[in-house]
Design a protein around this nucleic acid. Structure first.
Length: 507
RNA sequence: GGCCCGUUCGUCUAGGGGUUAGGACGUUAGAUUUUCAUUCUAGAAACAGGGGUUCGAUUCCCCUACGGGCUACCA
């Protein structure tokens, strides 16, 4: 009988979730879906001092935008809840006590201040097998004295007692065999003075209780892996230990360190999936959503940061990724984030997406720019006309707004130098012709326009640019006659007349 | 400082004992498009260094360098 794959992502609600975390979520999710397993979202809010209001909601919003749904979570529920660690507080202590009883952990009464002092005095001070004899803990005072202190309510923590001269090995799914000497690891706190577990205890206990089979996390956790391995062993659960995989980090574009939340502002690109407003400072950080990314492009880009399928394919939908993802093909080295390439993925997704798919996000982008006067059908045609020149969804504002609004200013430099009576006359004639003629399609419009220009002794090229400026306002946009056809006969005539007036002074 | 992990074009990466070291982004040049974008063609651009092992190493091993991570009663 094969046991079900169960993976988890366990963020702490201390702020916005940045793209490194989202990529870890993505890899967890892909692995779970591929194996018909479960993806669990667990909130690790064991540090009450760092709790940030709104952070948990934000995580769900990000997941939602990305199209990822947790099978079990604080919201979805599940058989292994609660899924918020602060609500599990009561279950951790017994395991810590169990470790004390079996001799793998001990009570320590040193206060944070005392230890801070030690660190001031001794460089590289560590609470470990070399120093623990000199400190205030249950290893150095009679057992009963320790028990009494605790009964009296003396503040204390429980620390793991790291063994001497032991090599701790484990096989990482990405890195292969990794080993540490127990002598290099300090006696980490497992249970804090406030009764909350630290991450080290909580991950192990919860992963066990929630029957996690594969534990994926960022590479920054590698150094604490030996603690977790030992805990699994000391708690008697070694046979149930999940397989570990430490994912490579996403690095700053300049390569100096891992990408951090502040880098968005510093380098000028988003690091959050959606806008994050820090509740304390009210400072807003841009999200990929608001900047104009499609979730498809965002996910595609993230997946390719450290993974590829071994072929030359670069564009993957979520379903493609679920089908083709494999842990073996994850890179070991960190990846510097490249915003240019990120935008390219989005551009590709805009190009291959149907107008129907694009309708809602493009509408949002236009509405945000206060352009609302259009029907869905109009917008659908416009999207098809302009999508290949958009990299971000927000580009639809510039590329699309003139379809719904006559230009209020003109790129005069493109018209001014060559504007004269002949041209004015031509456009007047063209407007007249439009008025009385039919307005079939852009091809016949083009023919009419060119014929008339030739008849009036104008070079076609000399008439095209002013026409574009009249309709669009600037030197951009799709085929002029497509634009004219799209905005319709009356509007085309209006814009010609309006421009003719504005150009009067250039003659 | 100590420990751990890593290192192929500027960036993301493929490859792997004998290859013209492949692709993509970006970049350069050109073609197409009577704006721009798209599209197409071509170009420049990489195996960190030193020792082994081997007939042969970019590929395997060791060392060095460099980069990154961790070193809290934070995750």
């Amino acid at each position: 009988m094969e046991s079900t794959v169960r993976v988890r992502f366990a963020p702490s609600p201390t702020g916005g979730l940045h793209i490194g975390g989202v990529r870890t979520i993505l890899f967890n999710y892909l692995f779970a879906k591929q194996n018909n397993g479960k993806f669990i979202l667990r909130i690790e809010d064991t540090d009450q001092t760092r709790f940030v209001k709104g952070a948990e909601d934000y995580i769900y919003s990000c997941l939602d935008w990305c199209g990822i749904k947790a099978d079990e979570s604080t919201r979805a529920g599940g058989d292994y809840g609660p899924y918020r660690q602060s609500e599990r507080k009561s279950i951790y202590r017994q395991y810590a006590e169990q470790l004390v009883k079996s001799g793998y952990a001990y009570y320590a009464f040193d206060t944070s201040d005392e230890l801070e002092c030690k660190r001031q005095v001794t460089e590289n001070f560590r609470y470990d097998q070399n120093t623990r004899q000199t400190l205030r803990n249950s290893l150095n005072i009679p057992h009963e004295a320790a028990e009494n202190l605790i009964k009296e309510g003396a503040p204390h923590v429980i620390r793991i007692k790291m063994p001497k001269d032991e090599q701790i090995h484990f096989t990482d799914m990405i890195r292969g065999d990794v080993s540490f000497s127990s002598n290099d690891v300090d006696d980490k706190v497992l249970l804090k003075a406030d009764g909350m577990p630290t991450y080290h205890l909580a991950v192990v206990v919860d992963d066990y209780l929630m029957k996690i089979t594969h534990a994926f996390r960022g590479e920054e956790w590698l150094p604490s892996a030996p603690i977790h391995i030992l805990l699994w062993r000391y708690l008697g659960w070694a046979a149930d230990m999940p397989q570990w995989a430490h994912l490579p980090l996403i690095l700053k574009p300049n390569g100096n360190g891992k990408l951090s939340k502040r880098d968005g502002e510093k380098f000028g690109f988003p690091v959050y999936p959606i806008n994050w407003i820090d509740p304390a400072s009210r400072k807003k950080a841009d999200g990929f959503l608001e900047v104009g990314f499609l979730p498809e492009g965002f996910i595609n880009m993230l997946a390719m940061l450290g993974w590829n399928d071994g072929t030359e394919q670069e564009i993957f939908s979520m379903d493609d990724l679920i089908a083709k993802f494999s842990m073996e093909r994850i890179h070991k080295g960190g990846a510097k984030f490249d915003y240019e390439k990120a935008k390219w993925y989005n551009q590709e997704w805009i190009k291959i997406s149907s107008a129907k798919r694009l309708l809602s996000p493009v509408k949002d982008a236009l509405n945000n720019a206060h352009i609302q006067d259009f029907s869905d059908n109009q917008l659908l045609s416009v999207i098809d006309l302009v999508k290949e020149r958009c990299v971000l969804l927000t580009d639809f504002v510039e590329q699309g707004s003139f379809f719904f609004k006559a230009p209020d200013k003109y790129d005069t430099n493109s018209v001014k130098p060559k504007w004269n009576d002949d041209k004015e006359e031509f456009f007047k004639a063209f407007a007249d012709e439009l008025k009385s003629g039919e307005f079939l399609d852009s091809a016949s419009l083009e023919t009419n326009f060119k014929d008339l220009a030739t008849k009036k002794g104008l070079k076609v090229g000399d008439a095209m640019l002013p026409f574009r400026i009249m309709l669009v306002g600037g030197k951009f946009g799709p085929q002029v006659f497509d634009i004219a056809h799209q905005i319709g006969k009356d509007e085309t005539i209006n814009r010609i007349n309006q421009a003719l007036e504005a150009f009067e002074k250039y003659k």
